[in-house]
Design a protein around this nucleic acid. Structure first.
Length: 261
DNA sequence: ATGGCGCGTCAAACGCGA
């Protein structure tokens, strides 16, 4: 089964683009971030027409996540555990049930954290603590899982075309990177890095300054696999081609193929 | 050199993102 994550930067602005991509790539599951829509405004019919079940956790104006699957959903949970006062829609999780395999898929939009010195940076770090705790909880369950999404983390220097340009940014702060390392150190596998050890592997290019044309990118969208999911990994990749389409998102789809069905 | 974008909200700029 193929699981894809994609920050689409507005589901209504990106509807035709998203539908065209799904027709071409046809993933079993796709996780969207930054839908920038309330649940009632999500164009679910258009996706249902392509055969997808749709679950959303929206918010007015910004943030918002959604998970779509060609297979049935079992449990659907909205919101990352650990802080009932958190009002931002950044996490949705579901069990996807195939005939011979069940996978828990977490779709996350990790806080950006900029600017440093504002309350946004500690919010990011606290959110990452909650994600790590949730990862521990999921590891205690027998069902394999994939944590997919826009992590807003540049893990290593190799993950940026110009790493020195990001040293003052929340995406590349030592505290941010350490929190990400702690998450991975639970025993998870970074699917893209495991399959593509070389430089030049990016998932985001800024709209400004011809960043895509210059390949001035960063890798911030990740798929972290539980040990049993990693055992079943057959391939992972980044689909750059929608970044060259009209009205693109600034992120591109990132996918992993898991054996079994 | 160092500015360059885009979306949503809401009706003119502004918050937000990375």
């Amino acid at each position: 089964m193929k699981i894809t994550t994609w920050n689409i930067n507005g589901v209504k602005a990106r509807l035709e683009t998203a539908l065209a991509y799904l027709k071409e790539a046809s993933p079993d599951v796709i996780c969207f971030q930054e839908i920038k829509s309330v649940d009632e405004g999500f164009p679910r019919e258009a996706f249902a027409d392509l055969g997808y079940n749709v679950e959303t956790f929206g918010q007015k104006g910004f943030n918002g996540v959604a998970i779509l699957s060609k297979w049935p959903f079992d449990e659907v949970k909205r919101g990352l555990p650990g802080d009932d006062s958190d009002e931002q829609s950044r996490y949705i999780e579901a069990i996807v049930s195939l005939p011979a395999l069940a996978v828990r898929v977490g779709c996350l939009y990790l806080p950006n954290g900029n600017p440093l010195g504002s309350e946004k940076f500690p919010y990011k770090l606290a959110w990452m603590d909650r994600l790590e705790a949730h990862g521990r909880t999921m590891l205690n369950d027998e069902i394999l899982f994939v944590l997919a999404g826009d992590y807003n983390i540049i893990p290593e220097r190799i993950d940026a075309k110009r790493p020195d340009a990001w040293t003052g940014d929340a995406l590349f702060q030592p505290e941010s990177r350490a929190a990400y390392r702690r998450l991975v150190a639970l025993g998870l596998t970074d699917a893209i890095r495991a399959c593509h050890p070389d430089p030049g592997v990016y998932t985001f290019w800024d709209y400004q300054a011809g960043a895509f044309q210059k390949d001035d990118g960063i890798r911030i969208d990740h798929l972290l696999l539980s040990p049993e999911a990693a055992d079943r990994m057959v391939a992972a990749g980044i689909d750059r081609f929608p970044r060259g389409w009209e009205k693109p998102s600034d992120h591109v789809p990132v996918w992993v193929e898991i054996a079994g069905n």
